[in-house]
Write a protein that binds this DNA or RNA. Structure first.
Lengths: 144, 144
DNA sequence: CAACCAACTGAGACTGACTTGCAATAGCCG
DNA sequence: CGGCTATTGCAAGTCAGTCTCAGTTGGTTG
């Protein structure tokens, strides 16, 4: 009972781990940055920049939207964060995990379903064989 | 040698055919509408509303962008037109064909490759069997 | 074939999702 | 502690559409 069993291991364990990576890359762990990370750690599904900016964590400290976007971009370049585009609407951000989660998007209810990348390997292989196309569903999910 | 062999049969044959459907639905075939259709008939791949508005046909008569969007929407509701979202960037519109063409999008070169829906049926079936998700790649293509 | 009227058009304002410029601020390495 | 420069916060800008509204026009009808 130490952790919510269904969460796959993240690419980075905690904020300190990320801080180290950040500093190694000549960056800093600022207050705004920490707020973004806290919101992402608190979220159970990919969330929008808007949601992060309006401070959905326990503290609910709102931060600047432009800064949130810049930080998400920076953290994504570091491999800490990833984002998906589910249909129309804003992009959704989440902490990067080790298995490269991919997504299914429901066109009717708008829900995003996470799928471990390996469960799509057979489908990916079939697409490559039949169409010569190396598919990825991590940034743009499978709609239907 | 009567037609460019590789074009699949359209849902509507020509402008007159569309005009009839339009009128049946209480609509009109206006000059602006005709311009949109001409641009789409002239295009060999899905094009943007911007391109249609700037008049890429032989005549190059520019038209109002808002009107183009309204007309594309109307024609889409009629089943004459469809559109795809290739990654970021604007949506791309084309005349609807009978086989429900689907698409592959190249993340590197940005190119959109048309694929007849039946060539993706096996993949679609596999996705349904493994994930219980009825996939469609006509509005959001397969990226990779 | 003229008149009528709802379906359109065009211009501009507006929205949502970001992105950029810039002066002020603040991590962090020494 | 000091200083260098990454980062912030705000405002303004951009891009892809959408909406409002007064004026126009297809096309059906009298």
């Amino acid at each position: 009972m130490t952790a919510p069993a269904h969460t796959p291991p993240l690419a980075f364990d905690d904020v300190e781990d990320i801080a180290a990576a950040l500093r190694r890359a000549g960056g800093r762990l600022t207050a705004a940055r920490r707020l973004v990370l806290e919101a992402l750690f608190a979220a159970s599904a990919p969330i929008t920049a808007e949601q992060i900016a309006s401070g959905l964590g326990a503290h609910a400290i709102p931060s600047d939207l432009a800064t949130v976007y810049r930080n998400l971009e920076r953290l994504e370049a570091l491999g800490v964060v990833r984002h998906v585009h589910a249909g129309h609407g804003p992009g959704r951000y989440a902490l990067a995990d080790q298995q490269g989660t991919e997504y299914l998007a429901c066109d009717r209810c708008g829900k995003l379903t996470a799928v471990p990348a390996h469960r799509l390997d057979a489908i990916r292989a079939q697409i490559r064989d039949e169409l010569g196309h190396h598919a990825r569903f991590s940034h743009f999910p499978i709609h239907g």
